[in-house]
Every structure is written in structure tokens, then in C-alpha cells.
Design a protein around this nucleic acid. Sequence first.
RNA 1: GGGCCCGUAGCUCAGCCAGGAUAGAGCGCCGGCCUCCUAAGCCGGUGGUCGGGGGUUCAAAUCCCCCCGGGCCCGCCA
Length: 650
Amino acid sequence: MDPVSLVISEGAEYFSEVFNLGVEEAFRLIQPPPREEYGDLSFPLLRFLRRSPANQQAVVEAFRGRIWEKGIKFIDIEVTGGFLNIRFEETALAKYVFGLMINGWKPEPIRSREPRIVVVEHTSANPVHPLHMGHARNTSLGDTLARLLAARGHRVNRRFYVDDVGRQAAVAALGFRLLSSRPKEVAARVGRKPDHVVGWVYAVTHTALDAVILKSKLGEAGDDERTMLVRELDKLLSTLARLKEGWPSDLYEAIVSGVGSLTDPEAEVSSIMKRYEEGLEPERSLVREVAGTALDGFRETLSRMGVDFDAWDWESDLVWSGLVAKVIEEARRSPYHIIYKGTSALDIPRIVEELVKPNPEYRAAFKLPRGFEVPPLVLVRSDGTTLYTTRDIAYSIYKFRETGADRVVNVIGADQRLPQLQIRLALLGLGYTREALNMIHYDYEIVRLPGRAMSGRRGEYVTLDEVLDEARQRARVEVEKRNPGADPGWIEETAEKIAVGAVRFAMVQTSASKPIVFNVDKVLDLKENTAPYLQYTHARAHSILEKLGGIDYHNIDYTSASHPDRRRLLITSLRYPYTAAKAADDMAPEDLATYLLRLADMFNSWYQKDSVVRDPSPGARNFKAMLVRLVRDVLASGLRLLGVEPLKRM
RNA sequence: GGGCCCGUAGCUCAGCCAGGAUAGAGCGCCGGCCUCCUAAGCCGGUGGUCGGGGGUUCAAAUCCCCCCGGGCCCGCCA
């Protein structure tokens, strides 16, 4: 372990013992001071020492002793302004670290002392339309979280929940039934990406369905209601007109007229849903194929994004295997089971009153809104089919059981906060206490189009595919400009890596709680965007080392470290293992992103005024080269955690 | 009607959860830097009633209360 990480780890342990707080909390409290002259690391002593001011010096001495024991003696510890400040003597620090590097050490996140099994469920888009920019945020966040946690030493299991049982899949299936040809055949005939084809069929079917239902309402509406309905209908018709454009008109007509000729369209959809849940043919094969076709498209896009899953969990399997029925059965026997509006439900309000409120630990864990009032959670529809929330209860249990997970992280939009909370409360009520307490809803705000949200059922979205393509095109122009005559294959590959990096970074760099209004130019302006900047900085560092050829390890002038810019770069680089570890603990990828940008700024600034290759002194040159290598290795490691490919040339 | 999230420089955001050390970046705008390690870069300048008002504290962008603005959620949809 490098000395900085070692001091931080020791410090966390020591402070946690002395001040009687959790190791993780102490770990988090060790921070870089706001101003450089205070030191390299700081700990807010005053806050704790106020209880016993007498032993301040004793604390410092004891801590110093502990660090010395570990062989780190090039360190200065003092207390100023209530903070314990730590400063490293840079010459010895550099010698120690470069020694590690020469022996093959590379900067990596500090590994957790308590490795856990963690499930990260993310993306889980309905298999009825392509992945759009809203999903891009989910995917980028989820995959980055998974990478971060894995690098921290946890055993991570990535899962995609295939939502094929609900109404949406049934609507898409109805569309294909009206086309009376198989989804894969339609996709092949149209010659577009399979998920885009499914998305179009779904949008046309859904919109046509809504139009038909609206028309029938129009007949029995009063005058006031009528004008509103007419306006609504106009909107649907113009949506249909938009959807018609650019697609084979016979397919369009087949769906629209097909929907129009249904005597009871609502019943048609319900019947597909019901028969699918029961596993009856031909619905069973049809819905599976519709979803499977969309999934083929997902996999293509996800693989471009560098995203992989350990498992694809089909919602229908949970139903067909009897797992959902078992949960419903357990619910029926539970003391919290009630009949609500004539059907089976869980009495969530009573679970809150009787289980959560009296228990401080639960109260903290569930963070109930103040005026929390939700109706009971209905488990089954009157027609016997299940509801999404019910199936998700079963799935939540399944995720823990299947993997032996200590913790399950669900990356799901903030709009689903309430249902997610309901599911956790239901689990608690059913006696799945451990699961309820260790299921985390990692919520993020949605990505909106200017003025409105993206809508799958109206086919109103910007797909991830088109954004990636557009980004690649823009990147290609830049790469060609800078590398005239380069191998076209290499150019294409590089442009793709820049495109993916730009998109992923853009989705992850602002904290998840902020809504993003999607702006193509914002994400794709490679100058303004910061992932290409980081890739560029990495390439720059790499090319210096290449130009240099090799480093003579026996001739390094360590006194070079005292130069302020180099010292700052050394210290900042060595904060990486800690920063990445903290980002993993806090599940805050944006912190890592910010750190990498700062480091790159520092490096580029130094680069401009302090040449490596042309330094006449071999000792200084070798020192700088090692420093460049350290920075490059940090950037490479950090970028990989964010799913951004570090480039050697661009 | 109730609840949750967001409001910091012209724009995009960090800092808030765990109150303290002179509020930070990027973009934009203005002015400079490529016979020299990749100018997707660097240097300098410009720019802030931290949405508003109270309160707690030795200390508030940060904690509490009220208000304003924007988004989301309160289904036998997902």
C-alpha cells in the first residue's frame, strides 16, 4: 500500500478507536484541507476533543507513533485551527512510492475491510422500445456503481430485470399479432435495429389504442368534457401521423385498422396479459419473442457502452415458477393481510404504525416522509393477474436468495420512490426484515427533453443509439483532423471510444439528484465535454513516456519533488486510492469524475511550463517521468472505473 | 390537498447529508501563447444578495421553521 493510503487507513482506525466512532465515518472525515499550506490531509480534531481538551498533544503523539511503526517517518503532524494536519516530506514520499512503482505497484482504490456481496440491478428497461437517453443515465450510473463497488473489493452481481409481464409487453404483443408476422421477421423486413422496430410497433399500437378508447368516450361525454377530449384526440392523431413517417405504410395500416376493428380493445390487452401470466400458447411464445427481439437490440447498444450483466431475470419466470404465487400465499397468511376494495392487499399503514414507528432503527432506515400516508398495497387484480409491485416483492426476495447478497442496490428513477418504499415496507411486514433493511433504492432524476418527459408509448424519445452515432461522427471529424492519413480502422475505433466516453461521463458527472434536460450539443460538444479532455490528458502523458523511451531507475533525483507543482501533483495523485474508495462507499461516481478533472487540470498546467523530455538533467528527467507515469496510471484506473477507455493516442 | 427532490457566477454544475480555515470548477465573454513532450491544451482578465425571510450557534451555502419558483409522486399502470 502507498504511504498516503496507509496513513489514511491507520488514521481511520486510530480515530475510530480514540473517539469511539465507526471506522467508515472516521475514514470519511479524513479530508484534504481547503488550503495547501495547512497540509496534505486533515482531521477535524476540535469537534471531538472539545469533550476532553486536555489530551490533544497525547492524541497527536500516539497517532504519530502508530504511523512510525508502519515505517512512515517522513511525516509531520500538527494541530492548527482545531484540525489535525498531516504533511508528508515529499522527497522521502516520492522515493517510497516510486520504489513501489518500480516493483509493479499501480494505483487502485483502497480495498474494503468488509467485503460484501452486492447486487446491482440497473437499466431494466421495458422490452418494448429502444434504450433512450433516460435509460442512458440509469445504465451509466448502474454500471459505474458496479465497477466502483467491485474495485472496492465487493463481490458484485449485475442483474437486468426483464419486465415482460405487464401491460406494456401485452400492448406490443397485440401490435405484432395484428401484423400477423413474427417480430424477428418484421425487424428483418424493415431492416432496422430490432428494438427500434419493436418500439415503433409498440408506440403505434398504444397510440391507436388510446385513440380508439378516447373516441368511444366521446360518445357519452358532456359538452365541457367534450372539448377537452377532442383536443386530446387531436394530439393522438398527430402523434400517429408522426409515427407513420418513414415506415412501411402497410405495417402502419395493418396495426391502426386492426386496432380500430377490435370490438373491445381493452379486453384484448387484458386477455393477452392474463393468458401470458398463465403461460398459455400462443401468447407465451409471442410475448417472449417480442421481448426477446427488443432485448437483442438492448444487448447491442449495451455492448457498445461497455456494459455487461451477470444475469437477465425474466419477470415471467418468477410468475411461472410459482414464486410470485408463494409470496401472495405468504401475504394471505400474514397478519397484515386485508381485503381492500374487494381484493387481496397488504395493510401498509399498519406495518408503518406497528413495526416501523416503535423501532428507532427502522425509522432511520426507512426515512418515512413526515405525513406519510399511503393506501394499502393491492397484491392481485380482480381478474387474478398480479401487479408489478407484487412481482417486485418476489423479485426482491429472489435477488437476495439467488446470490446470497448482503445488499441489493436498485438503480431506479426517483419517480418510483413511493412504490420502492412500499415494497420495502411490504417485505418488512412479511418478515423479510434483513431484505427490507438492505435493499437500497439508488434513485436518480429523469432525463427530460426540453419541455417534456420522454415517452415510450408515444415513441417520443432520443435513443441512445442515435446519440452514440452522432457522437462518433463528431469525434471522427476531430480524430481525422489531428491524425491525417491514419488507419481508418483505428480512427473509427478511437472515435467510438470517445463517443462512449463522452456519453457515459456526461450521464455520471452531475449528481443523480439533479434532473438533466437533455441537450445533444451539451453531451456531444467534445470541447466542452470532459471525458475526451481526460482521455486527451491520458494520451498526452502516455506519449511523453513513449517519446522518452525508458526510465533509468538508478538515476532519479528525488529532490526534484520539492518543486511546488510536482509536489502537488504527487500528493494529488496519491489521493486517488482514497478518493475512489470513498466514491464507492458513498455511491457517488461524480466525486471520482470531479477528482479526475482536477488532477488533469493540474497535470496540463504543469506540462505547459516544465518540460520532461527536454530537461537537461537526467536525474530530474527520470523523476518527472515517474511522476508522469503515476498520473497516467491514476487516470487510466479512474477512467476505467467510469467506463471510459483511456486512450494512448487521439 | 399531502409528500419528496431541486434552486450557488450569464449558462452547466461542485461544496450541503457528517456546520468551521479567504464560496470553487467548466463553458461563455475579453486579451495573450504552437520553429520546442499532442493547442481536444495553457496563461491572464471578467463574473456571486449561495431563491427570499426568520431562527439555532462562538461560527450557517451547510442545521431548523415559513414563504416563493421548477420538477416528480400520491392507480386493481409500470
